[in-house]
Design a binder for these strands. Structure first.
Lengths: 163, 163
DNA sequence: GGCGATTCGATGACATGTCAACAAAGACGC
DNA sequence: GCGTCTTTGTTGACATGTCATCGAATCGCC
């Protein structure tokens, strides 16, 4: 039973800033995305990940893993996006259980229309406010944290969005 | 119609790292919080903000503003927390429309039991992985971004979680 | 090849968050 | 004081996310 080590002043400052920034940045980016392109952030992420593949198609589970989403969440979300015509499902040739998610023409149009504005917003409200050294540091420590967290997940039964 | 300025390599690295870190960190912190203390992150935040006030009581709208939540969201969430006995609502003496949110005994117990473990997790999975200089930089640029975003919100009709 | 264990994706029930509308009460100008 | 405009918090309908479960298909091992 140790005495709790609370955060010192700098840590507290950093932690509060981080959480507040996240919230405000999310609100602003989501707002612009809906207004300008009629997409939510999750929509954008799905389309963006799909469009980064050569064919605009990915196995559902592969996409879920990349996004760190549960298959269930992705399946539900795809159903909704499918109804809007942004993506389609195809059967998987080599695994009859599988589903392949495909970017439709409309989906590609949507992401191509949305991307420039979104990137501009990310710059305007975030990246451009950082010095090059800060951007460099951000890239360095976030990936360090990601690697650390991936450690605790990959080994053993594999916890995760999957539960 | 300008040509889009995409992110250069460092910016892309930083932006992807940031988003991936957020997601993994959220999953891990939320997981530990539920397992160890039976609280969700939103629960924790409500209790935490309340417990930082001298009396453990706040006007609903004041709490919503601090948390950057809509009043609606907070009201719904309080109803649920109230049913679990973590908070209570009181009438506001000087404004009959108002509601005052009060930390109950059980709520205080819950946050006091949860806090040490949560802080430890924040250190372990995040802050302790950063150099002091990185923590310093994080505090600096996040608050810079927060100030910038607060600018775009405060003036004029006041956009926000409020819609 | 066959059988048990695992993986895949879908689904329904439920928890949570958003949005628009509302009633009640304050604020303000007159 | 009075009418109007605004603020406050709640509510219900709906969108989104989570969790447990399921049937179907595959894998692994014999």
């Amino acid at each position: 039973m140790e005495a709790t080590r609370w955060l010192d002043e700098r840590q507290d400052h950093a932690w509060r800033g981080y959480r507040r920034m996240r919230r405000l940045l999310d609100l602003e980016l989501a707002r612009e995305l809906t207004e300008d392109a009629g997409l939510s952030e999750p929509d954008y992420d799905v389309l963006s990940d799909l469009s980064e593949t050569p064919q605009g198609r990915l196995r559902l589970s592969e996409l879920a893993d990349r996004m760190l989403w549960s298959r269930s969440r992705l399946s539900h979300h795809l159903t909704r996006m499918q109804q809007r015509g942004l993506v389609a499902r195809e059967e998987c040739p080599d695994d009859a259980r599988g589903a392949i998610v495909v970017l439709t023409r409309a989906g590609r149009n949507a992401i191509e229309a949305a991307a420039p504005g979104h990137v501009a917003a990310v710059r305007q409200h975030f990246l451009d406010l950082l010095t090059p050294a800060e951007v460099e540091a951000l890239g360095a420590f976030t990936h360090r944290v990601v690697d650390h967290l991936a450690q605790s997940r990959a080994p053993r039964p594999r916890r995760g969005p999957e539960a």
